[in-house]
Each structure stands twice: as C-alpha cells, then as structure tokens.
C-alpha cells in the first residue's frame, strides 16, 4: 500500500536549517533518515520543501484571483516535506514515521494514497 508521510515542523525546527550551530545536526538527521528509507526499498518518492515563508497561496473567488504571500493560515507547525512509501500496512508506515527527525519537534501525518478508480 502507498502512504504519504507529511512532515510538519515547528518554526524553531525550521529555523535550525540556517542556524550554523544547528544546521549540521539538522541536515545530518534528515539525510540519514531519507537514506535509510531508500536503503530499505520502501521509498517511492518524496521531497523536502523550502520554508513556509517562500510559499504563495492562490484562490479564485468570483472569478478574481487572490494571491496571498505565505501559507494559507498561520499554524504552529508547517509542512516541511513529504515522502511516498510503499509498505505493507499502517503499522509499517507508522514505524517509518516514528523515525523522522521532526517527530519530537512537530509531527508526522500519515495518509493512505487514494487507489486508482475502478475501470469499467
């Protein structure tokens, strides 16, 4: 089964990316984690994302484009990246989620991928 793991990070956690004192440990942790998933052959794909302030949000209301700087709403945690895993069941996906560096400084949301629609 395919699952998407959505990695949510607190602002403090995102801040480590550019903090000289923390950056090595931060990136080292993520590289090792991604490497372990690739090594285990469970990773279908995935990406890290640039920080939330680089995001742009668009909606169209009554035909008018509303472009908004930043993510849609301010929340304590922002999406920092995602992977798609191919594993047997939810427990296996949870095992990988539990190893994510952000799991104790943020959270990981696990969502099963919608199966393709039945062909008629």
């Amino acid at each position: 089964m395919h699952y998407v793991l959505l990695y949510k990070e607190t602002a403090a956690e995102v801040g480590k990316r550019a903090d000289p004192a923390e950056a090595d440990a931060y990136w080292g942790g993520w590289n090792a984690y991604m490497g372990a998933m690739a090594q285990a052959g469970v990773m279908v794909g995935g990406n890290g994302l640039q920080p939330p302030e680089t995001g742009t949000t668009l909606s169209i209301v009554d035909g008018v484009r509303h472009v908004h700087d930043g993510p849609f709403a301010d929340s304590k945690e922002a999406l920092g990246g995602y992977v798609v895993l191919d594993v047997a069941d939810l427990d296996a996906a949870l095992e990988w989620a539990a190893r994510a560096p952000c799991v104790s400084a943020g959270s990981v949301e696990i969502r099963p991928v919608l199966p393709p629609p039945p062909q008629s």
Binding site: M1, Y3, A88, D89, L90, D91, A93, I110, P112
Partner: peptide, 8 residues
C-alpha cells in the same frame, strides 16, 4: 479498511 490497518 482505507488506512490499511493490518489484521495481525
């Protein structure tokens, strides 16, 4: 069913 919780 949809989240794939295993019967184990």
């Amino acid at each position: 069913r949809d989240a794939g919780i295993a019967f184990v």
